[in-house]
């Protein structure tokens, strides 16, 4: 399997500029490209797949430059948003397509093998419109794998899938990672699901790469407020917001501990402060129960702070305007934008 390197890739699409993007995708690795809508995720993938010309930079496959190769020459398994299944071909003939266009003599045998492997044999003669979302995903990945690609590039795999189908797709990915050494690039705006599949993360924002991290690094040391919000920190404050007047006690306390970009921390529990934690109180703005516990939003010193009481908790819910004490552990604070080596939080 190939080792892919993207080196300073830049692309212009209408008025959008992507790059420079650097990526390193080793055999057997899965890279998730994260970012909000309009960050350039799909543009990056379409450039990788050869549908948009690279203005600058290089794409290397095992050291050989393929930047200007045609899409069909790149040996990519590209799955576009919406999967791009052929509506006029049955499941079996969708999977057979890449083998057909390459005149592969083993087309029938390989199709049967993939149908079997992805539990699609009973659906072989159905058209894609007659399949559930999860089944369509399995067809798409079987088709992408059919001609043994050197890289799988998948745009928004979880789009419009229900919970069961997401779970099943997760299983398919795990199986894929276990049995194939093909590297994978996945684009998603859903970090929670990306964490379950990828082992490295590229964060894009406004066409620029904010960084490439592994999962632990991404959670431990988010580069900026955007990344921190993205990976799911409940409380994220830009430095500029903390510096704004009036300088309340909580603001001043957080500012003191903040990095150049700001500060983030997970939701503390609404309770009296334990040893070492600073004690604050806030008035309840909203409270909603969920599988992770009771999430309570309080206004403390004109900052909104999210608290979470893990289950089991018993009703009643805190009422609007009620005063709730909480503590913030100094060790739970993540300064944002701090240089990694000097970062105060490094467990």
């Amino acid at each position: 399997m190939s080792h892919w390197v993207v080196d300073g890739l830049e692309t212009d699409l209408d008025r959008f500029h992507l790059g420079p993007v650097d990526l390193d995708i080793a055999p057997g690795r899965a890279v998730a490209v994260l970012g909000p809508s309009g960050a350039g995720k799909t543009t990056l993938l379409r450039t990788l797949a050869g549908f948009l010309p690279a203005e600058r930079g290089r794409i290397l496959r095992d050291g050989a430059e393929i930047t200007d190769w045609l899409p069909e020459e790149r040996a990519l398994g590209y799955v576009p948003q919406g999967l791009g299944l052929f509506p006029h071909r049955t499941v079996a003939r969708n999977i057979r397509y890449p083998l057909e266009v390459r005149d592969r003599p083993d087309a029938d045998a390989r199709t049967r093998e993939l149908l079997d492997r992805f539990h699609l044999t009973p659906l072989a003669d159905r058209y894609p419109s007659r399949l559930s979302g999860g089944e369509q995903q399995r067809v798409a990945i079987a088709r992408a794998l059919a001609a043994e690609p050197e890289l799988i590039v998948w745009d928004e795999p979880w789009q419009a899938l229900d919970v069961q189908a997401r779970y099943e797709l997760g299983l398919v990915f795990h199986q894929l990672r276990a049995t194939e050494r093909v590297p994978i690039v996945i684009v998603t705006h859903d970090p929670a699901l990306a964490f379950s599949v990828a082992d490295s993360f590229v964060v894009l924002r406004g066409g620029r790469v904010c960084g490439q991290y592994d999962a632990g690094e991404l959670l431990r040391r988010p580069a900026d407020p955007f990344v921190a919000r993205f990976v799911g920190f409940d409380n994220v404050y830009d430095r500029a917001a903390l510096e704004a007047a009036p300088r309340s006690n909580l603001r001043a306390w957080l500012l003191e501990r903040s990095g150049p970009e700001g500060i983030a921390f997970s939701a503390p529990a609404p309770s009296s402060a334990s040893d070492g934690a600073s004690a604050w109180s806030g008035t309840v703005r909203s409270a909603r129960p969920g599988p992770l516990g009771l999430t309570v939003e309080v206004a403390a010193d004109d900052l909104l702070v999210t608290l979470r009481l893990p289950p089991p908790w018993s009703p009643p819910l805190p009422t609007f305007g009620e005063s709730v004490p909480f503590g913030i552990e100094p060790l739970s604070l993540h300064p944002l934008g701090a240089p990694p080596r000097n970062g105060p939080v490094d467990p």
Partner: peptide, 18 residues
């Protein structure tokens, strides 16, 4: 015709004519 379906076919190895 959905352009993404055409892109999928190109990426799966079909030339522009195919």
């Amino acid at each position: 015709v959905d352009g993404r379906v055409i892109e999928a076919s190109r990426s799966l190895g079909a030339g522009a004519g195919t």
